[in-house]
Design a protein around this nucleic acid. Structure first.
Length: 517
RNA sequence: GGGCCCGUAGUUCAGUGGUUAGAACGAGCCGCUCAUAACGGUUAUGUCGCAGGUUCGAAUCCUGCCGGGCCUACCA
């Protein structure tokens, strides 16, 4: 990505007032695939996810549950750690904003901002609803016929309230941010988001309220502990807490600046405007790239709690299997776009791409080998043009996938891999090794070797997406552990290696019998 | 209101000035039989949202209209 050997990728830290849903699973999955790819590609990877545990909402939710805030967040945060296991994510750490080191990092950053003259004490003013215990901006309120102003969303009466608050001088950062975006065209992806952010900044920025006195569950402002640092300053700081901030001699500091913050499109402003401004104000480098992905709909419908159509990733995995779900989420939709989760489409991918194309390719090749070659990697004879053509396609995959993932184009990476799988299936039919068995066993062996070697290369690249399934296939090819990284991409299968009995890896999905019918 | 984006085969999309507009899935037909009834070959379908304009030439550029989506600050 940057040419340096480290690769630091982060998910947002997830707010613990809710259980994980498909959106959380999706963001972390994308990061996981990148982290796994980069590790296999020899990079020094640090992959961070975690939970955001502060704020008034949590304080209230804990009180409602009759628990101290820490005990409450311990409990809810666990569901996100469980998801890591369920989805086979490979984070190097799981950070929590309630950790001591995070308080230290937030307060150190705060002091830097104060020293830089970018923070001042002012008054936060807005339309406050006592009933909702929250502020509304002017546009979220309206004056009714009784001349009383109410929040549109909740109907609660609001009153003008002012409280002391510290402010970050965001208004002074517009030009520096725009200059930064210009110099770093890759900073925001996809491009449509970049346009959005830039036009937002061009419209002028207001100073940002960064402390509150209305609750206490959070990081106290240094020297003025009645003030609690406001959500985003606290939350965003996690990315440098992990790198040891403020101790720049920490072994983890080498990972900063992050190579990629993966985010949902709803929080792009915080990552692309506020965060680089905070960092530059503190004399720190902004991250190299922020990528905003889209949202999933459920069978064409917007997902919402009130509609009751929230997608639980655990249910999906239980119904269709982990790797098929991982594959589908990244293959079905151009990454960055919104996508629709249709079970019919998922089953289509599972059966068409995984069971028929890839799984069956492995199975048909490996069973001919098992039956005809004494269960060993067959001898590689003289290669003809058709052999070389297929092998070359497979060889080209590493560079192709690397380039696509560099742009977070997961779907295109998978498309290019599956093109080679389709080529391999065509090659099997064209070469008909079953017919060669009787007339030219030497040629048959070469054909089988070419196929096994192609499957090896393809499967090395499938690893980041479907680690368990790829491991099973590599085992069936007897690829040793030390030959599974991309450094060994060109280490060809050795003829004569004993292979285990082939076994199907991607069973077809058959609709469970319905009660009626 | 202002800004950005999109509207291409039944479906999901690719194609951003140049020969008869492509892919995948789905559908029909043929072949194969190693394999998870898998695989391969082949056929078919489109007034490229509508109407103008620029150009030797437009799905591709410009204008208008219709339809859809997103952004327009602190509720992650």
């Amino acid at each position: 990505m940057s040419g340096r050997s480290t690769f630091y990728v982060t998910t947002p830290i997830y707010y613990v007032n809710d259980v994980p849903h498909i959106g959380h699973a999706y963001t972390t999955l994308a990061c996981d695939v990148l982290a796994r790819f980069m590790r296999l590609d020899g990079r020094d990877v640090h992959f961070l996810t975690g939970t955001d545990e502060h704020g008034q909402k949590i304080e209230k939710a804990a009180a409602t549950a009759g628990l101290p805030p820490q005990a409450f967040t311990d409990k809810v945060s666990q569901s996100f750690r469980d998801l890591v296991v369920k989805m086979n994510y490979s984070p190097d750490n799981f950070i929590r904003t309630t950790e001591k080191r995070h308080y230290a990092a937030c307060q150190a950053l705060w002091e830097k901002l104060v020293a830089a003259g970018d923070i001042y004490l002012g008054k936060y003013a807005g339309w406050y609803s006592v009933r909702d215990e929250t502020y509304f901006v002017e546009g979220e309120t309206e004056v009714g016929p009784d001349k009383k102003r109410r929040a549109i969303s909740t109907g609660a009466e609001v009153e003008w309230v002012e409280e002391p608050s510290y402010f970050f001088k965001l208004s002074t950062w517009s030009e520096r941010l725009l200059a930064f975006y210009e110099k770093n065209p890759r900073f925001i992806g996809p491009d449509s988001r970049r346009n959005e952010v830039m036009s937002f900044v061009k419209g002028g920025l207001q100073d940002l309220s960064v402390s509150r006195t209305s609750f206490s569950w959070g990081v106290p402002v240094p020297g003025d502990p009645k003030h609690i640092m406001y959500v985003w300053l606290d939350a965003l700081t996690n990315y440098i807490t992990e790198c040891g901030y403020p101790d720049v001699s920490s072994p983890n500091w080498k990972y900063w600046p992050a190579d990629l913050h993966m985010v949902g499109k709803d929080i792009i402003r915080f990552h692309c405007v506020f965060w680089p401004a905070f960092l530059m104000a503190a004399g720190l480098e902004p991250p190299q790239r922020v990528f905003a992905h889209g949202w999933w709909t459920n069978e064409g419908q917007k997902i919402s709690k009130s509609l009751g159509n929230v997608i639980d990733p655990v249910e999906l995995v239980d119904a269709y299997g982990l790797d098929p779900v991982r594959y589908f989420l990244l293959r079905e939709v151009p990454f960055g776009n919104d996508g629709d989760l249709q079970k019919r489409a998922l089953v289509g991918r599972l059966n068409g791409d995984l069971a028929n194309a890839y799984g069956n390719l492995c199975q048909r090749v490996l069973s001919i080998v098992a039956k005809n070659c004494e269960g060993k990697v067959p001898p590689k004879g003289t290669l003809i043009d058709a052999d070389i053509a297929l092998l070359d396609r497979a060889k080209g995959l590493l560079a192709a996938v690397r380039a696509e993932l560099n742009e977070q184009a997961f779907h295109r990476a998978l498309i290019s891999i599956w093109e080679v799988i389709a080529d391999a299936n065509r090659y099997v039919d064209a070469q008909a090794p079953w017919a060669l068995a009787k007339i030219d066993p030497v040629r048959r062996d070469t054909v089988l070797w070419v196929l096994a070697e192609t499957i090896r290369r393809v499967t090395l690249l499938v690893q980041p997406f479907m680690p368990d399934s790829a491991a099973k296939i590599l085992d069936q090819l007897a690829v040793p552990a030390d030959a599974q990284a991309f450094a060994a991409f060109d280490r060809e299968l050795e003829s004569g290696t004993t292979l285990p009995k082939p076994q199907g890896v991607f069973p077809r999905f058959v609709e469970p019998a319905t009660a009626a019918s």
